[in-house]
Nucleic acid binder design. Sequence first.
RNA 1: UGGGGGAUCGUCCAACGGUAGGACUACGGACUCUGACUCCGUCAAUCCAGGUUCGAAUCCUGGUUCCCCAGCCA
Length: 562
Amino acid sequence: MRDIESKPSNFIRHIIDEDLKNNKNGGRVATRFPPEPNGYLHIGHAKSILLNFGLAEDYNGTCNLRFDDTNPHKENIEFVEAIKNDVAWLGCDWGDQVYFSSDYFDALYDFAVQLIKKEKAYICDLNAEEMRAYRGTLTEAGKDSPYRERTVEENLDLFARMKAGEFEDGSKVLRAKIDMASPNINMRDPTLYRIRHGVVHHQTGAAWCLYPMYDFTHCISDALEGITHSVCTLEFEDHRPLYNWFLDTLETENHPQQIEFSRLNLEHTITSKRKLTELVDNGHVEGWDDPRMPTIAGLRRRGCTPAALREFCQRIGVTKSENVVEMAVLEGCIRDDLNKNAPRRMAVLHPLKIVITNYPEDQFEELEAANHPQDESFGMRKLPFGRELYIDQEDFKEVPPKKYKRLIPGGEVRLRNAYVIRCDEVIKDAHDNVIELHCTYDADTHGKNPEGRKVKGVIHWVSAKHAIEAEVRLYDRLFNHPTPDNSKDGKTYIDHLNPQSLLTLTHCYLEPTLIDATPGEQFQFEREGYYSLDPMHQANNKPIYNRTVTLRDTWAKIEKRR
RNA sequence: UGGGGGAUCGUCCAACGGUAGGACUACGGACUCUGACUCCGUCAAUCCAGGUUCGAAUCCUGGUUCCCCAGCCA
């Protein structure tokens, strides 16, 4: 069991502590994570997953992974597999069984029959439009359905024939018989079963033409699995009376407690499955695992780690208040983790060639470099150094701004892990663009400071002859607006898409040790940020690196203020 | 003139009648062969109005404001 003290508490843990003190549920804690397999999981689901599995882990309980698969029209097996993959990647262990609501279709049918026998459910022939009209409004009570008083026998017969496939889609539904005048609209005789012919369910195939609704299915599934604390998001708060009504009316053995918390909102992104689906289906992104997507698959491909996501979910906490978390929190968690765990490499993103004129042609030497400045266990690597190198265009300025401490004409700079060089000559093309620099190096500055002068700047480099060419993809926020799906400016989230969310650099140069990088491996490209080797793709035989997150950049901040 | 929830630094989260605290951000400084990391410091909040109390973010009363609900979606 994990040290509970190490995790910040929250109101749900307070409730469980209290339940445990009162020996409720015999001291048992059982949670579940119940995704619908109609899309990929996003960072908001990560919050829920880590909450539910975290509670189980810390209270020595269990957490079931249960697919809430009652709407075969929208669900498929690809999503089931993707979800399992993501939950496992987060480090959550669902044991040896994956649950499906569809496992309970028989049991659910029997419970429905039981409800009919108790005169608590009836078959209704109203069509969808009529039913809406009968439901009333937020401020007016609804009217009883004309079919509300059918006899038990008739209802039983009709329900059996619905199951047998005698009726068309939409012609009949099974409804609970509760109260059409309830101020809670969920209690106005909610639908329990609808007819769906001709869809193949990914688990049950064509066995059913009758599918149960969420409200009926969820509470019973929880009860059958012996769930003690059924944690869900705030929008289900109004459904709790209905959740309890079913379990009370059916007198199930267990009566789990539904507890609601507020869902995660992240600035500059969206966490609506419906809208994420639209981004994918309409080609606004390359797929569910596009590194700009807030999906778990996208974050993973971007180079985010499970540890960073776990830390993130701890930092944001669990409450019932509406919240919009700043992207800086996520970025901070990723940086903290990768700073500690990503080996350092050098990569030149915007190459500028330099020639060390006093370094012999065709001569090379190997310089040792630490893989991590604070952690010796990362070991050392050898970097080839020669007469021709690439540095970044940003690290040279003909006319330097104030406080600039990189390379300038006639000035000196330290090449990271190598020598101090001086810029002697600037070579330009016909359009006055700097295309090459001629420099000289001080052979006595490897591993030590130069005599009698201070060199402030340190820049990264790669050997031109040995460098690996790569494509590097720089990602920025997917949306310009902090709350794109709720911007209150009359625009939709699509209008707020950031056209510059992806910047592809096709001619970058990496230090040669990166030839051994494995797909998905994370590195810090020194002075640039954290990057990871794209696990899916290559570009014309060149590796693709995705920028996970930049380094904190106080210089950029100063520049921006200027 | 329905029902259900929520309001604490810019952001997120604590404090559960007894000094409003932490994290992130921002700002300043130290260090530095990464303008990174690390370290030090600074700014910064109880929705409003009454009441109870020696004492209120917390309890009471009345407001304000924001979110959710009228699928045969979950």
